[in-house]
Amino acid sequence: MLRAGGLEAALSPAVGGSLLHLALDGVDLMRRAPDGADDPLAMASFPLAPYANRIANGRFVVDGEDYQLPLNFGDHPHSIHGFGWQTNWTAKATTASSVLLAHEHGGNAGWPWLYRAEQQVTLTASALSMSLSVENVGDRPMPVGLGFHPYFAADTGTTLRFDARGLWLSTPDMLPDREAPADRLGDWSRPARVQGDYLVDNAYTGWAGPAIVERGDGLRLMLSATGADWLHVYRPPGEAYFCLEPVSHMPDAINRGGMAMIAPGETARLSMTVAVEKIDTPLP
Rank of each mutant, 00 (worst) to 15 (best):
T94N: 14
R140V: 10
L19W: 10
D197S: 11
N255G: 01
E104T: 10
L270V: 14
G74I: 12
D139L: 05
R193A: 11
G206N: 10
F83W: 09
S18P: 14
L160R: 08
A14R: 15
A42W: 08
V99R: 07
S45W: 08
A182H: 04
R59V: 07
L128S: 08
D163V: 09
P181R: 05
I254C: 03
G196V: 01
D39Y: 08
G265I: 03
A52Y: 02
N57S: 09
M261E: 07
D183Y: 00
S12M: 06
I80Q: 13
T273K: 06
D187M: 07
W111S: 07
A240V: 13
S98R: 03
D25L: 00
P210S: 11
S189L: 02
T226I: 08
F152E: 11
A253F: 01
T158F: 05
A153H: 10
S224C: 06
L11E: 12
M142A: 02
E277W: 00
A10S: 10
A211M: 07
V121G: 04
L114S: 02
L123T: 03
A37T: 14
F242Y: 13
W188Q: 03
G166M: 00
I254R: 03
L48A: 12
T124K: 00
V247W: 07
D139W: 07
P284F: 05
S271N: 10
A228W: 13
